[in-house]
Design a protein around this nucleic acid. Structure first.
Length: 123
DNA sequence: ATGCTGACTATGT
DNA sequence: TACATAGCCAGCA
């Protein structure tokens, strides 16, 4: 039991509270399927916070178990590509390895691979 | 507290 | 289809 009055908030704190909600949702995305940032935010109980979803994923780092590559933007494109062609390339590689197919313009056909997730968690 | 930034989205041209 | 704008909101300096 932490002493009252003393805020032991000085932990690594590399993951701001609340972001774990996004991670929890991303972890539920089935292999071979994708979800949009807006979708993740909504399922995390934070509708309209698509940007935060992306921000949270950006903070993950390279050594993570969260399937960040299964999250794409509303257009089916890899927003990660903005950060650099390499990052986008890796995401595409991972998705293709899971069976996700890209169209001629390098986008994921959401009609086909979009995960139909639902909250179904705690009421 | 204030202002800037961004792995976003919806809408208009 | 592609680019520009506006709305959005949490994190950070």
């Amino acid at each position: 039991m932490p002493r009252p009055g003393r805020v032991t908030r000085s932990l690594p704190a590399q993951e701001p509270a609340g972001w774990s909600r996004f991670y929890a949702v991303v972890r539920r995305i089935p292999r071979g399927q994708v979800a949009t940032y807006g979708q993740v935010a909504a399922l995390a109980g934070r509708p309209g916070n698509a940007r935060q979803a992306g921000y949270a994923l950006h903070a993950l780092g390279e050594h993570t178990t969260v399937p960040w590559h299964r999250v794409v933007n509303a257009q089916g494109r890899l927003s990660l590509a903005r950060r650099g062609p390499e990052a986008g390339f890796e995401q595409r590689f991972r998705l293709e390895r899971e069976g996700v197919v890209f169209d001629a313009r390098g986008r994921v056909p959401l009609k086909r691979f979009r995960w139909k997730g639902s909250r179904a968690r705690k009421r």
